[in-house]
Design a protein around this nucleic acid. Structure first.
Length: 269
DNA sequence: CATCATGTTATAAT
DNA sequence: CATTATAACATGAT
């Protein structure tokens, strides 16, 4: 489920355990989520440690523990973080459970596309410090959007929006939402946007991210009913703007949900 | 039983 | 070389 706002929401579930000492660590070592992760280091690093801080960047979460231990979490397609009262018995797809005296912090992920990694340093790991700016960051300039559009001119715009190198945290529903708010079809070539449209894309990116963070990110509340968001997964789904039937089609391996009636290419205006 | 799913990455093809 | 396209990963829901 997680895109930037959902990731923020989940990171805050674990914040409930801030300051508590980890008394036991349960890890389902066979799970794919530990690929590339030193499990022994994870267990020894977290045991006895206290959660000091958490932060997110795009779809990444970074937890800081006492003693210079860091745990990075990516939630993949179906990952989730939760805090549960003790005693807590691990469920089927719980891959990591950090037990404290009163609260169990759990990472669960049925499809195991998520990933965990640990490191021991004074400051956040090097790879964290060089993550590209998020769309709602002040350092994310409109010129950056224009450059990206130029560089990947032949890429469908919706597909380009999913590229984490440029738009960290944007996922399938946010990309569709942005295309819908832009009134552009998902397959329009990135390079076909005029300067004015590129600026509008920058604004739309910021707005969708800002509002998602303030709603989903806070308490899982839905974004405005006027958005595509609340309609795209319904059994019968019509465009909340014009009432036309929404279309679902595969674009580069992902489902694009859009309104053929009001998402027209620029040339038709 | 077949298809699909709010993601990433290795590898192939332009 | 730079960019774009596809398959694979593991499990559950429809």
């Amino acid at each position: 489920m997680p895109e930037l706002a959902e990731v923020l929401y989940f990171s805050r579930r674990w914040d409930a355990g801030m300051g508590r000492v980890v008394v036991a660590v349960h890890a389902n070592t066979k799970s794919r989520v530990f690929r590339g992760c030193n499990i022994a280091a994870l267990k020894s690093g977290l045991a006895g440690a206290r959660l000091k801080a958490s932060r997110t960047h795009g779809k990444q979460v970074l937890f800081e523990f006492s003693g210079g231990h860091w745990l990075a979490v990516h939630l993949g397609m179906t990952g989730a973080l939760s805090a549960n009262p003790e005693p807590y018995e691990p469920c089927k797809h719980d891959h990591l459970v950090r037990h404290t005296k009163s609260l169990a912090l759990v990472f669960t992920d049925p499809r195991q596309f998520g990933a965990l990694k640990v490191c021991e340093e004074k400051t956040p790991p090097a790879w964290w410090k060089i993550l590209p700016p998020q769309p709602m960051d002040d350092t994310f300039a409109p010129e950056r959007v224009a450059e990206i559009l130029q560089r990947h001119a032949r890429q469908p715009l919706k597909t380009l929006l999913l590229d984490q190198r440029y738009f960290p945290g944007i996922g399938n529903w946010m990309a569709d939402e942005i295309m819908w708010q832009m009134k552009l079809p998902p397959h329009i070539a990135a390079g076909s946007l005029a300067a004015k449209q590129a600026l509008k894309l920058w604004r739309t990116l910021r707005k969708v991210c800002d509002v998602a963070v303030k709603t989903i990110g806070v308490d899982w509340r839905n974004p405005p009913r006027s958005w595509l968001f609340s309609h795209r997964w319904k059994r019968v789904n019509d465009c909340p703007r014009c009432g036309a039937k929404l279309r679902h089609e595969n674009l580069r391996g992902r489902t694009a949900c859009w309104c053929p009636a009001c998402q027209k290419s620029i040339m038709t205006y």
